[in-house]
């Protein structure tokens, strides 16, 4: 079974359309509602998704791991990480899956930087991305062209080996670090990312750094 995992927090405006679009490309869509205060659950359910509801907001990493736990329970063969906010294009799913299977990879990471046309804002390309890359390197992640891209494909082996412990955004560094740790076969694939008001600010960057630094000390 090909399962799409969609973490969502207060995404009532876009989650319904995202689920409907995903259902055209996957067998099942699981929305992990991360303590939303709006109508995210109703919109996702009406659109045909299975909804796992966090009673409290725990962060995107925590929501993805809840999706992983569900995927392990139902023995999913393949899972897709996909944002609820419409940042990604469903048109990338089929070619990414084809590429992933042809390369017999365990995990696929989407990348904005592999696209033939440059759509990344210059601030991100020149400042944010080099810092994020350096942080990934410091914390033992595999080298990726796009370090914080939420479009990912996992096969069953990767799903069983990768357990996300970072509740917030540091999971984006933890996952490639676990790929290296478990010596999984990974590939990168160009995917579109639409830019609105989204993205990480400097404070979020410091939170990621703090989370990564504290992680080894937490039992």
């Amino acid at each position: 079974m090909f399962l799409a995992l969609v973490p969502a927090w207060n995404e009532e405006r876009r989650v319904g359309e995202t689920v409907r679009q995903l259902l055209l490309h996957t067998d099942c869509v699981v929305v992990i509602d991360d303590g939303s205060k709006d109508h995210t659950v109703e919109r996702a359910t009406d659109a045909g998704a299975i909804v796992l509801s966090h009673k409290l907001n725990r962060g995107q990493g925590a929501a993805l791991e809840t999706g992983h736990a569900y995927a392990r329970e139902i023995n999913a063969d393949l899972i897709l990480h996909f944002d609820a906010d419409g940042q990604f294009s469903v048109d990338d799913i089929a070619p990414a899956k084809k590429f992933f299977e042809a390369r017999h990879a365990d995990i696929l990471f989407g990348s904005r930087y592999l696209l033939p046309t440059d759509t990344v804002p210059w601030q991100k390309r020149q400042f944010v991305h080099p810092i994020a890359k350096l942080i990934d390197r410091l914390f033992g992640a595999v080298q990726l062209s796009d370090v914080h891209n939420g479009f990912r494909l996992f096969n069953r082996q990767a799903l069983n080996l990768i357990h996300i412990t970072q509740d917030r955004m540091a999971h984006a560094t933890e996952i490639p670090a676990l790929v290296k740790h478990h010596n999984l076969h990974y590939v990168e694939f160009p995917v579109q990312v639409r830019y609105d008001e989204y993205g990480q600010n400097a404070r979020a960057g410091f939170t990621i750094l703090k989370d990564l630094f504290l992680a080894p000390f937490i039992k």
Binding site: K55, D167, I218
Partner: peptide, 18 residues
């Protein structure tokens, strides 16, 4: 550490409800 414990409880509750 307490945050992670809370996440575990929230996660289990979400899965059990489903």
């Amino acid at each position: 550490s307490m945050n992670r414990d809370i996440t575990q409880i929230v996660r289990q509750e979400a899965l059990d409800t489903q």
